[in-house]
Design a protein around this nucleic acid. Structure first.
Lengths: 171, 171
DNA sequence: GCAGGCCAGTTCCACTTTAGAACCCACATT
DNA sequence: AATGTGGGTTCTAAAGTGGAACTGGCCTGC
């Protein structure tokens, strides 16, 4: 499967990864949430190659995650800002950072802290059920085909006739 | 910056991406949460090349996200299972899937639904503050250096002396 | 009125990674 | 002995990446 075929899959994960699932894109977005907005600032903070940065920014603009806003004329200069679609990636970024804080921090502890201005405390992000507000445990979640499901595509492995004997090749 | 330098950065995001931030790894993990466990099943469901699948599974085992469990002898056969460290990636996976559901679903709607067995409802994952349980808004979150912070490394862009004039080159 | 600098890219080339197919090996079945 | 199964490894060509240099409009200083 090529990278550009990913977005056509009947799977929200694949489709999301076709936008953000690249070596650099999530790091660019992290910096966006840290209020970096300009080409050279991304470039020097990330140490990314200029051609790749230009390509990734363009792709993020094309997929409406970022938008270019003029900040000067003569010559026209644009900065890159998160759209609402981009802002909606916040839980993704925070979940990744939090996992790193828990599982990949050195002895010295986590590099960044997050303070919730609403309540005034340093916090961790927690993922809860939208219906009962309890913390989600993967073992308490059942996956079901939704309205946009393709037949037998990316269903749970155990939903396909119960055992390996009965399964059809998924490809 | 090379891929293998990423894990050495003083940033939880970089460190996490050094483990999971690859084109295929998150798709493999999605299938792990869908209870796929065997080499050929990953291969046929994902359409991934065998050499790359072998490499990614090995790396996930090396970083303790997956573990190999024998399910038969003569010949020895192993299946790949999520460790606790791997299970802790659930919020990451769910956040990505949810973003795809909201922003990348076709007309037909989302491909998969999630049912919370604890409360019996279909749900969406919601990210909340661990302290006050309110939904997180990036504009209400302030980023501060933590105990493991390196000097001036990956700080918010606006924490560096307030304006572009005063900033030192971050590299 | 020309050198040099700033910002935002683009071009070029060497190097690395990936995709895809074929091959391999240790059994187990027929 | 031939065939099948599970889990890989070995190839090659194509794609992607990193780094440095180049482009080009505008501004500043001299």
């Amino acid at each position: 499967m090529q990278w550009n075929e990913l977005g056509e899959q009947t799977c929200s994960m694949s489709r999301t990864l076709s936008v953000i699932g690249d070596r650099w894109t999530l790091l660019i977005l992290r910096d966006c949430f840290l209020k970096v907005r300009r080409f050279d600032d991304f470039q020097s903070r990330l140490g990314i190659g200029r051609p790749i940065l230009a390509d990734r920014l363009q792709k993020l603009v094309d997929s409406f995650v970022l938008t270019k806003v003029a900040y000067q004329q003569n010559p026209m200069r644009y900065e890159y800002r998160l759209t609402q679609k981009g802002l909606d990636l916040y839980p993704v970024i925070m979940a990744i950072v939090h996992w790193g804080d828990v599982h990949m921090s050195g002895k010295k502890g986590r590099p960044l802290l997050h303070r919730h201005m609403t309540c005034g405390h340093n916090f961790d992000p927690v993922q809860v059920c939208s219906e009962c507000a309890e913390t989600l445990d993967p073992r308490q979640v059942q996956v079901l085909p939704g309205p946009g499901a393709a037949n037998r595509d990316h269903m749970p492995a155990d939903a396909a006739a119960g055992s390996r004997a009965g399964r059809a090749k998924a490809g």
